[in-house]
Design a protein around this nucleic acid. Sequence first.
DNA 1: GTGAAAGCGCTAACAT
DNA 2: ATGTTAGCGCTTTCAC
Lengths: 340, 340
Amino acid sequence: MSKLTLKEMAAHFKVSVSTVSKAIHDSYEISEELKAKIQKFAKENHYRPNKVALNLLNRSTKSIGVVIPNILNYFFVQVLFGIEKVANDRGYSIISCISNHSLEKEVITLELLNSGSVDGLILSSVFTESQIEKHAEHIKELLGEQIPLVLFDRVTELIDCDKVIVDDFEAGYKAAKYLVDTGCKTIAVVTPMKNTQIGRLRIEGYKKALKERDLPFDDTLILSIGKKDDLEFLLSFILNSKKIDGIMALDEITAVKVMSIAKSRGYHVPNDIAIIGFTNGQLSKYVTPALTIVSQHGAYIGETCANLLIDRIENKNAPKPFETKVVKTSLIVRDSTKKQ
Amino acid sequence: MSKLTLKEMAAHFKVSVSTVSKAIHDSYEISEELKAKIQKFAKENHYRPNKVALNLLNRSTKSIGVVIPNILNYFFVQVLFGIEKVANDRGYSIISCISNHSLEKEVITLELLNSGSVDGLILSSVFTESQIEKHAEHIKELLGEQIPLVLFDRVTELIDCDKVIVDDFEAGYKAAKYLVDTGCKTIAVVTPMKNTQIGRLRIEGYKKALKERDLPFDDTLILSIGKKDDLEFLLSFILNSKKIDGIMALDEITAVKVMSIAKSRGYHVPNDIAIIGFTNGQLSKYVTPALTIVSQHGAYIGETCANLLIDRIENKNAPKPFETKVVKTSLIVRDSTKKQ
DNA sequence: GTGAAAGCGCTAACAT
DNA sequence: ATGTTAGCGCTTTCAC
C-alpha cells in the first residue's frame, strides 16, 4: 500500500482534485456532506499531504541543515541541542550531518544540503589555518550566497555571513590567569587543535596572563597533539624535563586524559599539578578530582545560531547587515585547581 | 540573488527548458557548442538542480528519519553514529530528531517525518510498559504501514516491522553473574528506567543469576528512580538499611553517580561495594576507578538498523518477512568490580 | 539538434 | 458548490 494522494481520492469520489483539496482544508466552498465523506475517507486511509510537493510549491522546506565535525564531542552535542530547541520552537526541523573532521566530507555534505533541501545552513567548518583561504573560496563557490549561512566556533572573515563565536582569547586568558593566581609558575598547554585559530587565540590569552605576572613564555611548554600521537609519551617527556605545576588542556577529553596520566605518574592534582580543561561536559563533573573547566555555553551558542539563521531566512527580502555574536565563556572552578 | 533554475537559463539562451536540461546532463542530443556554453554558464552561476523537484519526480528523497529520546546519552549518540555511517555509505542522508523522552514530542515528530520527507524511519520509542498498547495503535495509525519502519532498543510485538534489540535479559544476567561470581552477596539494582521492558528484562536476568547461586531475591533492593528523585537520598537509605556489597546501575550516568555517592560515604570500590554500569561511553573509562560495564554496541546497532531499513526501502516491491535482530552485549571488566 | 507536452502532488486564482 | 487552469523545477518521451 502506497501513499494516498488527492488524485486517487478524486478518482474514488469522481470529483476533481481541487475539490478534494478544498474538502480536506475544510473550505466553505464545499458542501458539508461532501466534506464529511472526503474527510472521513482521508482519515481512514491515513491521508498525509505530501510535503515534498508542498515544499516545491512554497519554495521553502522549513528545515535547516547543521554540519558539525563530531557528534562524540560534548560541545557540539550541546550546540546541536540548542539549535534543535530553537528550530523546533520556530517551526523548523533540522537535518544534521557529521563531517567527522574531514574537509572532504564537509564539502560533500554542503553540496548535498545546498540543493533546495534546506532553507539555511549552520556550519562549524573543520579547516585549519593554512586551509582557510582555499576552503573559504570553496564554500563561497559552493553556496554562491544563495542560501543563508551561519558559521560558528571556527569562523573566518573571508566568508561574509552571520557568525557566532566564543571569545577564545579571553577564555585562554581567564584559564591561565586563574592558574597563575593560584600559584602556578610553569604552565604547560596541551592542545589537540593543531593549527586552528581557536587554539591560537586561547594560547594568545594564556600568553597575556603570563605577561601580566612577568612569567616567561616558553614555547616548549606548548604540546600540540595529533590524532595519532601518543599523548602519554609526549606529555611524560615534558613532565620529565620541566617542573610543571599547571596544565591547560584545550578540550574536555584531553584534560581528562592529562589528569589521568598525571595521577598515574604520582602527581597530586591539584597540589603538585593543577589542571584546567575546556568544555563543560559530563566527564569533567564526574572525574576525580572534578575538573575545573572553561564552559563555552554550547547550548546557548546553538540557540543563537538558530535564531540568527531563522531571522535571516524569514527576512530574505529586507536583509540586515551580517552580525558576529560573541558568546562569553565562564570559568567553572572545581577540584583540579587550587583555591584562590 | 535567488536560486538559478533551468527555466531562467532557458530564457537567457533563448532555448527550451528541456534543451537546457539535456545540456546540463551532457546529452548526445545537444550540439557540443551549445552544451559548452550552457555548462559554462551553469557553473559560473552555481546552478544546482533543485532536489525538492527531483524528489517529487522520483517519489523518493534518499533520506531517512531517525527519532531518538536523547542526544545527551552516549548510547544513542553511538547508535546515531552507526546509522549515519551506513546511511552515507549507501547514499542516504539522515534527518535526526530528538523526542526528549516525551511521548507527545515523539508523535509530533513522527507526524512531521511521515509526509514524504523521508523514505523510511528509525525509531527508539519512549513508551513505558503501560503505554505500549495505546501508543502502538497510535504509531500504526500515524504511519499506516505506508513507510518502512525500524524499531530499536525499546520495541513491541504490537507493531509489525523490522526491529533491532539488545538481549537485555542476558545483559542483566551477565552483569549480575559477574558480581555474584566475584563474591557479592547482596546486590542492589538502581534503575532510571521506570516501567520499561528493558529495565524489567535486565532485572529478570539479575534474578536468574541470583537463583543459580541460591541467593534470595529481595525487591527492596531494586531502586527505581525518576527524573526528579534525589538519588543520593534514596540510595543512602538502602545503603544504611542493608549491607550492600554490589550495585548494578542500569545506565552509565547513574552508575557514575552511584559510585560517586558510595565513595563519598566512605565505601571502597570495589572492595566494599562493587559496581557495574550499562553503556560503554566516555564516562566509564575515565572515572576512578574505571567502571566495569555492559556494552550494548550502540554503533553496531545503528548500522544494523540502517541496513535493515535501506534494504527494505530499496526492495519495496519484493517484500521479505520482518526480521528482529538481537545484538549481544559484552561485559567490559574494569576496576569497579573485583577480579575473578 | 531542438522543442513541446506530460506529469510528480499540491494549491490558488479564476471560471462555471 | 464544483471544476479548470496554471505553475512550483525537473525529467522524459515523442515530435519536428
